[in-house]
């Protein structure tokens, strides 16, 4: 698409005329939205999640959060575990917290399944290795974002992430999405995907889908830099652990066990 000088001047003229007539009207009238009132976005300096595994365990075999997340974000369901794509998932405690487990542990913890997702690390190794900046850490609120337009499918990030939070689309995901959510894109073959802390929902003033879906209210989401926030209140009052903190990635998903 090229714009020659004539076309550019024409467009500039139209735009200037539009601004000249539109600007005063805008100043006088209240801003109107074509889609009705929009709710204010949820903002934070540092989003973080606290997962209460005791509450999570109360609902045996519940995967409401996983289903809600995967339905919202058009995450495909492949039959072959080698092709698995996941944003939020459950894993045996000894896999999730390798080194924390021992033979004489509390029974419920020993046999528990921990809920896992992207840790939105303060120092994310996946971001450091991405050659196209298709994944990056948002300065404003600490979310480790993905730009699927830019992902070239090199899978460096999959190798770099110590938490297994990233999945690669080895096959075309579209035929494997049972119920497509039209308001969220799918991915294509050759693209990596992961949890984004529901940044598109936060922008609409909604809490992450998993937090809303949990029947036990085991997930708490909030601003870590706000001393008044729910997450801070929980973290100051209860003992919490994180996955593989020794690696220095500074994960921002906290667990109460």
């Amino acid at each position: 698409m090229t714009v020659d000088r004539r076309k550019f001047i024409k467009l500039a003229g139209v735009t200037a005329a539009g601004l000249a007539t539109g600007a005063p009207a805008r100043l006088l009238a209240r801003e109107t939205s074509a889609q009705g009132e929009r709710s204010a976005p949820l903002l934070a300096k540092r989003w973080a999640m606290v997962i209460d595994l005791k509450k999570c365990l109360r609902a045996q075999g519940c995967v409401d959060c996983v289903n809600a997340c995967h339905r919202t974000h058009n995450v495909p369901d492949f039959d072959n575990p080698k092709d698995e794509v996941k944003w939020v998932w459950k894993e045996p405690f000894e896999h999730a917290f390798h080194g924390e487990e021992h033979e004489y542990q509390r029974e419920d913890v020993k046999h528990s399944l921990a809920l896992l997702m992207c840790n939105h690390c303060d120092s994310p190794p996946c971001v450091k290795v991405c050659p196209t900046q298709a994944t990056w850490k948002r300065e404003s609120d600490g979310i480790v974002m993905m730009d699927w337009h830019r992902c070239i499918g090199c899978r460096y990030c999959v190798a770099a992430c110590p938490y297994g939070s990233r999945s690669f689309n080895w096959r075309d995901p579209r035929p494997h999405i049972s119920e497509v959510n039209e308001e969220f894109p799918t991915r294509t073959r050759g693209v990596v995907e992961k949890c984004t802390f529901c940044e598109e929902r936060l922008a609409r003033g909604e809490m992450p889908a998993c937090v809303e879906a949990c029947p036990e209210r085991a997930l708490t989401f909030g601003d870590l830099e706000d001393p008044e926030s729910d997450v801070r209140a929980i973290l100051t009052n209860a003992y919490s652990i994180r996955r593989k903190p020794e690696l220095g990635t500074v994960p921002e998903v906290y667990y109460l066990v």
Binding site: G22, R26, T32, A34, R38, M145, D147, E182, E183, E199
Partner: peptide, 23 residues
């Protein structure tokens, strides 16, 4: 995606969500 700026302001001041599938 990259700047988190989701509001488009039309010439007459109407605001729209910057979205292919939602607008």
């Amino acid at each position: 995606v990259r700047r988190g700026d989701r509001v488009h302001i039309g010439i007459d001041g109407t605001t729209y969500e910057k979205s292919l599938s939602r607008t």
